[in-house]
Amino acid sequence: MIFARGLVKRFGDFTAVNGIDVEVAPGEAFGFLGPNGAGKSSTMRMISCVSAPTSGELRILGMDPVRDGTRIRARLGVCPQLDNLDPDLTVRENLTTYARYFGLSRVEGRRRADELLDFVQLSDRAGSMVEPLSGGMKRRLTIARSMINEPDIVLLDEPTTGLDPQARHLLWERLFRLKQRGTTLVLTTHYMDEAEQLCDRLVVMDGGKIVAEGSPRSLIETYSTAEVVELRFPDGLDLNADYAAKMSGIGERVDPLPDRVLLYADDGDAALTEVHQRGLTPSSVLIRRSTLEDVFLHLTGRTLVD
């Protein structure tokens, strides 16, 4: 569906995407993860054929986005990072108008609009203007809009950023159904739980490059341990680095943070026993499974990027 080799996007002197290779298979849910400024959105814009690659090869649905942009876009659904719904139109008109851009007849546009409003549970708001809708409703409408042309690929740029948990779960459930119908999903996110929920496969981007690739499970296995022990000490703050030094050799890796020490080990209980044996007495201990977040922070660092 999507094939990229050595894809580069530069804006003047700034390199947003620095030579990435990506392949997405039909029916797959593929994720781009990365901190802000990693090049996810620039990549998405190239895939959605609104931004020409600076260099490298890009094929979408077997076509060249520079030559066949119009034909490719006819088969894509795009859900941008910021809602750009039309505030001058009603909820339903937002969908029927969008259908016209794809060359669908009015009758067909209305049929699909009603079907999609039902799918995203907005039928009762069909006649409302966009502005009074909640953030979650707008997001659902944007997703419905991206499906009006029955796309082969749906591109979602941070689909649930800024939504409350209820709205996120409803959205995930709808996206999961979409995937079950065989639609290929490509999404960017910096929510690790979202990536774990939705993605079959993902890449982690940092500084315009891909730093890791695989399924959520395989990434955890490769870049982290099965379990993580979180230890807090009463006099932590300044001394965490010293505590971490005393723990060296236990598990695979020790990571002192300002407020706690993370101990990466395949057997958390065994590691904790060893910590106690070394005479350390943490005030609180939490043993948990490793998550994608651990992988993410390990790969892209803890420094704030912007």
Binding site: S48, V50, T70, R71, R73, A74, L76, V78, P80, L82, N84, L85, D86, P87, Y98, Y101, F102, G103, R145, S146, N149
Partner: peptide
Amino acid sequence: YVKTYEAVLATPVR
């Protein structure tokens, strides 16, 4: 402001 055209350009419209 409302980025209407950004949405339009995600479709076949040029």
